[in-house]
Nucleic acid binder design. Structure first.
Lengths: 203, 203
DNA sequence: GCGCTTGTTGAATTCACCTTCAACAAGCCG
DNA sequence: CGGCTTGTTGAAGGTGAATTCAACAAGCGC
């Protein structure tokens, strides 16, 4: 029997439980009882807080996306060197390993997006925000003379995010030789070329 | 009442029906009756040919992947100019529009791959085969003096396939401004840079 | 045209999940 | 401490899907 919690606490628990359940069973295949099990509750209790399961799943996925995006921004916050910013940001766009929860969830949603307009819109927005993030890094670095960009920042930003995304899928699918380090190096090879920088952090 | 067909014909029908049903309902959410409906049969008839639905789904997805890959190879077959090969191949890796059946199915499977080792292996294999395809194009072009590659062909091939894949997801998710033409141009911008070629087909 | 194999249906069964709800436990506020 | 709100359970009922199977139709070999 689960300990009684306040409305707010329980809703936060349920969002995490829903994320875990979706990782196991997929965002559209997940069952009410599976979420309840992850939360250590009965299905009735879940329904008490979220009368419609799809509302809970949507909130859980939005929360997952925001966590991913804000973690990237937070890592960026302390840095000033454009080269360091770019290198760190490329890393933070990749899953740490094949079991990375945030990226696995994003990949699941990517599949769904073809037939679910809501998730499609959310992912599109996330993509565009990440592109903007890169554009800011690239243009700032360019203005400071650290980068000599070979194309407009929109093109470069889109390609950088695209590479991250695609390698995220490969890593999550457990490619036997293409792990996080290799993926980062592949993206860096592109970044070096289009920034004209060796991307070595100044001493 | 469906007309009676031979074993082979019906199995081919069922594979197509399964593909359509998966496009509507997702590869892991699809129901036996939905496949039957697409085939114009009852669930019993489907089960007669495929006692286990997951076998049918697997065959349908393998068939989808092979069709995608072999269509790319076929488009390549008649060409001799390395520039033309590269340009055509980049195009053939993108969905024609957001409703492109083959790519939509591949995207669905990409999401699944995080928790299904079989589909993960199939997609990994498809990725690697496409990388090899690009490597051949790039190295042949390089040997013929059409390209001056800026990195090893494995790096470039992987990045080209990665870009295709990622933009496939964006297009399928109906990005408002990033359509097939724009995606092709983004990938071409990368290809130009790493081949040192304008990628204009010689007259 | 007869009989056998192959393909298909429709109904019956079973099972899993969702949904609802009456009962009850835990705090909180008077 | 007594009543009220809030959170939770467990069981009951309803629904829908998978599965099984007896019956039947369509062609093929003879």
């Amino acid at each position: 029997m689960a300990t009684r919690k306040t409305r707010t606490e329980r809703r936060a628990d349920l969002i995490e439980a829903a994320q875990r359940a979706m990782l196991r069973h997929g965002p559209d295949g997940v069952l009410l009882n599976q979420v309840a099990e992850q939360a250590g509750l009965t299905s009735g209790a879940v329904l008490y807080h979220y009368p419609d399961l799809s509302d809970l799943l949507l909130e859980a996925n939005q929360a997952g996306m925001e966590r991913f995006y804000s973690a990237r921004m937070r890592r960026l916050a302390g840095l000033t060197d454009p080269v360091e910013k770019l290198v760190v940001t490329i890393r933070s766009g990749l899953p740490v390993d094949a079991d990375d929860a945030d990226v696995r969830l994003l990949c699941e949603l990517g599949g769904l997006a073809g037939r679910n307009r809501v998730y499609a819109a959310l992912l599109t927005s996330l993509f565009d925000r990440q592109v903007s993030m890169y554009q800011t890094i690239l243009e700032t670095g360019s203005a400071q003379g650290a980068f000599a960009l070979t194309a407009d920042s929109l093109t470069l930003g889109r390609n950088l995010v695209a590479l991250e995304d695609a390698y995220g899928y490969r890593i999550v699918a457990r490619h036997p030789t293409l792990h996080t380090d290799e993926a980062a190096e592949l993206i860096l090879s592109y970044a070096r070329q289009v920034t004209g920088s060796s991307l070595r952090v100044a001493a």
